[in-house]
Amino acid sequence: MKAVSLSLALLMAVLSAQGAPFGRALSGSREQPRVASCDHPEFALLLPHMSGNLKLGIISDNRSAWLNNPQNIKAASTKNGVSYEVTDPLLGKGTLTLRARALNATDGLLVEAEALGVPEGVKLLWAYGGACGKVIDAEPALAPEYCRNNVFSVEGGAFTLYFGEVMRLKIVQGLTPPESEICLSDARQQSSPLAFFQSGKKTDAPALTGALPLLNGQKYYFCVYVQSAKADYAYYMLPQL
């Protein structure tokens, strides 16, 4: 009964917050979400200190677009989170569906992405960063001013983000598809996903970007979370989470 009440409360929170940037609370309360999402697929971890922003884009040859155009995105609350159906000229007649929810065992976010009818050669771009480690009043965007001293340890498709300060270190873990081509990037160059991806690591605002081929019918997962004895994940575990 308690679980049902909790789900209803969460659903109400998600429904009632539509429209506002980061107004969809996937966990925490509407006023103080711990995992927040938007009406487009962009997410923030607020624990309550800003622990990073996950945003997505698509790349086709030398063109690219962030997944943030409301005309191309239908967002809908689901039983335990939110789903997005994305269309875009770069996707041809295809669609990209994303389903996102908070994790149960720890603070964290799980996103599942699946493309259907998308032309060959389209890539999905993801970017994570902006963990300033402080409680912020402003929108929890992947803003360069939040990126200073973010350190990303990349191991295959996984990353560990270190932020905060000496003796008060903060850490979040990330899991992305193993086929991601990952690089350090300059959060001051986000005019397009491609520009961000190709911006290079010589910056005072480091963020992480990754690009992977978007194959129709294949499910891709993205997970960012706080590791604990109960929450220690590898990519192959994500479909069952």
Binding site: V151, S153, L184, K201, T203
Partner: peptide, 10 residues
């Protein structure tokens, strides 16, 4: 020398 910081922020 593009990456000045270590994970421990020191």
């Amino acid at each position: 020398r593009d990456e000045p910081q270590a994970p421990d922020q020191g």
